[in-house]
Nucleic acid binder design. Structure first.
Lengths: 129, 129
DNA sequence: TCCCTGTATGTCATTGACGTTATATGCCGT
DNA sequence: ACGGCATATAACGTCAATGACATACAGGGA
């Protein structure tokens, strides 16, 4: 329980996760990247640590922070029951757009920016589970 | 942009989404379900509306709120670059646990509460896209 | 041992979110 | 037109998160 929504609500913390996605880093490096005061970064790291989103490896006076993706997996699990919904509506949208090729007034959604991977591939309303 | 993290950070709003996941509902029904004051619910609905997470259909003096899952799809897209990470670490964990069957000191994670669906099914580190 | 580097924490003021109570708006039935 | 129901908004107090600044702590090298 205790999904990490509130932790992820802060843009600074999301940037930290992005940086740590590439590789573990010591605090000073994160400070340099984010161009923020060191206490500020340390406090956000503390929040991330308490939420289990990062772990620390102590190396002399340097602390290497490392991403711990498990809470994000729980977030992904939370999304699960909603996934089918946007697949369905995406499907409906596709059929809709299919009928009228490119309405000039509406902002184009013809690119791939939309539904990232509906389970069924083709995007049907079937459910296996 | 403007991911719905801060909107979803509130438990009340998540409960609202849960209720609306089943079917569209008028405000009064949501108030009854949540056992909260009507202004409180209305304000949260406003936040959800402004974030695009719900839409309203006006029916006389009743307002039917309906879930709009697109922003959740964007959240899902945000998760994408992290997904492979927990698949990898889950994989590593599996191998790890496989080696030592049930350490008594650690809290058991042997149940299925873990990684919901890594793309590759078996949980490998392959990537097909 | 002393100092310097790297990092964490304490204090404090500011800000914004949240909840409650009171009130406004809009639509219906009579 | 009037009263009442369903919902939105306003005003206000409260509380927690955030950030800046100052300081504490720990380890390493001289």
């Amino acid at each position: 329980m205790s999904l990490p929504f509130d932790v992820l609500a802060d843009p600074t913390r999301r940037r930290l996760l992005e940086l740590l996605r590439e590789r573990p880093r010591p605090v000073g490096e994160l400070v340099d990247e984010l161009e923020m005061s060191q206490p500020r970064v340390s406090k956000h790291l503390r929040v991330l640590r308490e939420a289990g989103l990062v772990t620390v490896r102590v190396d002399a006076q340097r602390r290497w922070y490392e991403l711990r993706p498990q809470p994000l997996a729980e977030l992904d699990a939370w999304l699960e029951p909603y996934r089918r919904l946007w697949c369905e509506s995406l499907d409906a949208l596709e059929r809709h757009l299919d009928a009228r090729p490119e309405q000039p007034g509406e902002p184009g959604r013809a690119d791939g920016s939309w539904g990232p991977k509906c389970p069924g591939g083709g995007g049907g309303s079937e459910r296996g589970e």
